[in-house]
Nucleic acid binder design. Sequence first.
DNA 1: GTCTTATATGCTGTTATGGGAATATATCAA
DNA 2: TTGATATATTCCCATAACAGCATATAAGAC
Lengths: 117, 117
Amino acid sequence: MPRLATTSDVFNAVAEPQRRIILELLARGERPVNDIAEILHITQPQASKHLRVLRAVQLVHMRVHGQQRLYRLQGDGLKPMHDWVAHFTHFWNASFDRLDTYLADLQTKESGHDPLP
Amino acid sequence: MPRLATTSDVFNAVAEPQRRIILELLARGERPVNDIAEILHITQPQASKHLRVLRAVQLVHMRVHGQQRLYRLQGDGLKPMHDWVAHFTHFWNASFDRLDTYLADLQTKESGHDPLP
DNA sequence: GTCTTATATGCTGTTATGGGAATATATCAA
DNA sequence: TTGATATATTCCCATAACAGCATATAAGAC
């Protein structure tokens, strides 16, 4: 199973730092491509390419406005990622419950590992 | 700015589907390498390589137990990712506040985009 | 010691990626 | 129409990633 294409997997699309920065920028409002390129200090073609990837995975939405293409964040595209990470939150959120710590300690003491449920 | 190495960036390490599955598995408890390989239907070297990446970004912890190497999830390694995604939660969580929808509508009506704050 | 089990590492080939530069397309203005 | 601005696309190159397979290391059993 090779790594999924950046254009088909949100996790992979967001693995590129510049694209994360673009999303952060667009979270503050709609922007044309040249603005994005300038602000991120990248060339216009690079910006266009990153935006293409983000559009492919539905993380941004484009609309035509004269010669400009205005890009807007489509935040709900990040929901799958949020949901996945949320499964692990209790591993660093001690107040959630103490079951995990208990299990971890138990395993360490027994020097074994548990079977699949 | 090239893509960061899988061994140095959590986002990138987790961009690989198999590694996400490994993390999900380890969330249920500590496991030796061969178990992981069997359960995921991958070869042992592949499992070892994926675990190496996950260890490099501190997402798993290994301890020696006889001939076995037991891997355990280090969930807090996902916190940076969680925090980043959390910035965007209100984009699909309508009850959070209505400012974003308001701004989006405003932009559409004005057919313009807003300046940087 | 040898043999076996468990895991890690090395090597090779293929592929996708991102950058750079040039060019194509689109829209508006004159 | 021609020209200017905004954006997209194409081509080439370097690199890193992953899979597959062989091999090395480590630890226990005998």
